[in-house]
Amino acid sequence: MVVGESKPIEEILAMVADFDKILLTGCKGCVTVCNAGGQKEVGILASALKIARKKEGREIQIDEVTLERQCDPEYIDQLEEPINNNSYDAVVSMACSVGPQYIAARYEDLLVFPALNTTFIGGSLEHGVWAEFCQACGACGIHNFGALCPIARCAKSLLNGPCGGSSGGKCEISPETDCVWHLIYDRMNRLGQLDKMANVVMFKDWTTSRDGGPRKIVREDLKQ
């Protein structure tokens, strides 16, 4: 999933400092799963913002709505009713950054703000802990590395084994960070595939990655 985390409340407060009526939109997709921007987090943020503004003696009206997803035009339709029937000063989206961009594209004259920092493509390690697993390079080759991704999980995206900074299974950048190449080595060892690790992996073609420009997928079988 796309993992995100809330921006500091001070930052969001500064974004809405000039407004008295906003729509706060959550998303029931990835950011609900990672407890960053679902219905519950929308409620908490709205309450915190309202407390802060009451304290300043300038109350803010915050309407809350949480969409099925904010990355599909058909779900953005759900905003028609609240937005058309209210004169919001701005919309604050708690989806990943796709959400506010969709809302901005739909409502040309409306100010839109992101309440989350979209962090990475990853998964949860345990309740309350998430880690990065994929960098969306667009040409998955993890089967060559024991089904672990060195591009996303090695600090230097190395393709030919652990660098000289691998120590005790940890990466040189932090004792909290696993050396994915150590994990790859251990797994290839268990799988009896260490011989594969002796091959020099040559240049990666980054054209399928973001380096090739913004990407788009067109599926003719699905298009209408």
């Binding site: 030919n160 652990p162 660098c163 000289g164 690790m197």
Partner: peptide, 16 residues
Amino acid sequence: NPFADPFDFRVTRLAK
């Protein structure tokens, strides 16, 4: 770097 881990891979990396 012969002193980095995993040690057994270090000579393989040299060979590469």
